[in-house]
Design a protein around this nucleic acid. Structure first.
Lengths: 221, 221
DNA sequence: CGGAAGGGATTTGTATACAATAACCCCGGC
DNA sequence: GCCGGGGTTATTGTATACAAATCCCTTCCG
């Protein structure tokens, strides 16, 4: 958690997201120690966290591998996230402060700007999107819920490097956010829950479509 | 997570559950190393797991304390558990094999036997109860779901040493299990979900009533 | 008397060496 | 030719020493 450990976490994570390693590939703690420039102790710490986020997995015999997400794994993850995040939206609708609503509006403006550039600034979109959802977790005032969601949300970004969003997808996402804000302003928990549900379910299908079955078609041998 | 680490985890956990330490009390890794008889390295490993299960917490400055659960914390936890476990019950209703149903019936028989002793064998009850729910997680065939639930379910047993169940509470719990099995036999996901929902919600109230507000009324100084 | 600054003691974080375990490879028997 | 055994290598697990951070108590100044 301190400097070396945190740094190792960030570097390994970036390494995984950069696409420099293939899903299913074996890693060793020594390798990661070399890459990160710290000793194995903080590396093991960082690896723990990444296992928790399901970016890394260990075999039954403790060997370390890059996680390989099947289509079903992804659907499962989105389903769980939907369940939890709908709950968060409902709670948030009862609790959001004016300032938080204003922040959501600001983030959504930013998000739209990112979309309307050509080409759309996907990184900026994803950042604003994440911040938007985090305001909601925060407003839900349920630390455990936030903790559970953190795990689920981290995972799918693994594949984002390979993903291409259509501008239509991004715009729909922004419209969802607008409607969520409307539901929040109206303080209507049911509305918020419903919008969040369809928002995430569509996100799942968009995700699957853009990734296709490409994530897992390499020969594991 | 090999021998020393696993052993440290088990010993520390037992130590916490034994009531030998008070909620909010500070612990040091050295102490735990002495208690467990292994070095700090595997202790740190075990501590991380226990932090994850929310039995231990760290202050902002990384010092280690026994977790202190407020009534609201407990309610939050039960709410999340209910949400996830209802989902698990629904999925399980579609997927349970004959063998798994038979196992549930066997566990429930065991559980009833434990109740009808005088005094009721609460430890045996809790073990059978846990095993019962674990069969359901398993049948739900959603690894992530099982992982999330594992975290939530571990936590409340912290206080079980101080808790007294009435025989009526235990019998109602057994009846819930009977009805769950009936829902599973009927392969009715909605029924299973509904029963699980009321089962856990009642469990929450039973828990709060039996613990009272006694969990947190010690002076923190 | 209050409060801030300093310094020793406590506690956590990291590096390194070594131990234990698992994977791999080669070789011999059948 | 293939299957199993034994030793070698690769990889993870643990112990220990030391570094960094934090706490706490004392002291000194206002």
């Amino acid at each position: 958690m301190s400097r070396a450990s945190e740094q190792a976490y960030a570097k390994i994570r970036a390494h995984l997201l950069s696409g420099a390693v293939r899903a299913g590939e074996q890693l060793t703690e020594d390798q990661l120690a070399q890459i990160t420039g710290v000793s194995r102790t903080p590396v093991r710490d960082a690896v723990r966290r990444l296992e928790d986020e399901l970016l890394l997995v260990r075999s039954d015999t403790k060997r370390l591998f890059v996680a390989d997400w099947s289509r079903d794994d992804i659907e499962e993850m989105f389903t769980l996230r939907q369940m939890l995040e709908c709950h968060a939206a409902e709670r948030a609708a009862r609790r959001l402060s004016r300032e938080q609503v204003a922040r959501l509006e600001g983030l959504n403006r930013d998000l739209k700007e990112a979309i309307e550039q050509s080409p759309p600034d996907v990184v900026r979109f994803l950042d604003a999107n994440r911040a938007f959802h985090e305001v909601i977790y925060d407003a839900a005032q349920s630390p455990r819920l936030g903790q559970l969601l953190a795990k689920l949300v981290e995972a799918p970004v693994v594949l984002r490097t390979a993903r291409t969003y259509s501008q239509g997808d991004l715009r729909q996402s922004a419209r969802d956010h607008d409607e969520l804000v409307a539901a929040f302003v109206a303080r209507d928990p049911d509305w918020a829950r419903a919008v969040m549900g369809s928002h995430l379910r569509r996100a799942f299908h968009t995700f699957v479509r853009s990734v296709g079955s490409a994530a897992n078609d390499q020969d594991p041998s």
